[in-house]
């Protein structure tokens, strides 16, 4: 079993923070201590067009501090050394990932112990830009499904995807409103009927109550903007606040069923 498959053996809490925003190593440790099952490490980009204000600002804070791609892989590799069993996935946009070629990026992922990659702007139609290189190194290309992904299109999204399927529950950007629970339940049922890989639900999930409701039907719950806002508020002192929120979310997710 891979780290990701293990993590989703029970309902999993997936926690996102942006690399280079605040004391990232301490932030990641706090997420794990709070009970996060999977870590999503955001790669900052100058033009994060799928993100709302909270994550946009985190990208700007990180890049203003001079965060480089090398720094991000150093953060990932150090995390892997401290937490050998916690899956870590990178999330970001295509251009920083393919800048030095997809093989270079996949090699770096493998060397740093990165389990999967979520690339927002490489849909299955453009898989050749990164997917083959990741799969060749055993790094899972994690695809996104959305409310606009219809039944006819879903097989194409699933073909070649790995790790887990990230269901974006609202047509919109990160950190905004949550979708109605009924629509999430319907969508997750539809997705799970089409694939054996775990289905995690994100976008707009902020509270333990929301997380608990989603964990009743899905394999995982993704929380990002609410955590990133804590980093914005507390800066270098964010770990305590992150640990507290993560702990509440983890309890809600793990006791949902």
């Amino acid at each position: 079993m891979t780290r990701l498959a293990n993590a989703f053996a029970k309902p999993a809490l997936v926690c996102f923070v942006t690399a280079g925003d605040g004391d990232t190593a301490a932030n990641l440790d706090a997420l794990v201590e709070g009970g996060a099952d999977v870590i999503e490490l955001g790669m900052p980009f100058t033009d994060p067009m799928a993100d709302g204000p909270a994550i946009q600002e985190a990208n700007i804070r990180s890049l203003a501090k001079g965060t480089t791609t090398a720094d991000i892989f150093a953060i990932a590799a150090a995390f892997r050394a401290r937490h050998p069993d916690t899956p870590l996935v990178l999330m970001g946009y295509a251009n920083p990932m393919i800048r030095r070629g997809p093989e270079w990026f996949a090699n770096q992922c493998e060397a740093a112990g990165v389990d999967g990659v979520i690339c927002v702007d490489i849909p299955p139609e453009e898989d050749a830009a990164l997917g083959p290189a990741l799969r060749a190194k055993g790094v899972a290309p994690i695809r996104l499904a959305t409310p606009t992904t219809d039944a006819a299109r879903l097989p194409q999204v699933l073909n070649g995807s790995g790790g887990f399927l990230y269901y974006v529950s609202v047509a919109g950007i990160t950190g905004k409103q949550q979708a109605a629970m009924a629509s999430i339940e319907d969508a997750v049922a539809r997705l799970k009927a089409a694939t054996d890989i775990p289905v995690a639900v994100g976008f707009g999930v902020r509270t333990p109550e929301q997380a608990s409701a989603i964990a009743k039907v899905a394999d995982g719950v993704v929380v990002g903007s609410a955590l990133v806002e804590l980093v914005a508020e507390h800066g270098e002192d964010a770990p305590a606040a992150l640990r507290e929120l993560t702990s509440a979310l983890a309890h809600a997710v793990h006791s949902a069923r």
Binding site: A50, I122, P123, E126, R143, P147, T149, V168
Partner: peptide, 12 residues
């Protein structure tokens, strides 16, 4: 060229 967009936009 190509279609490097988020999945939400792809069906559109």
């Amino acid at each position: 060229g190509g279609r490097y967009v988020a999945e939400t936009l792809m069906p559109l």
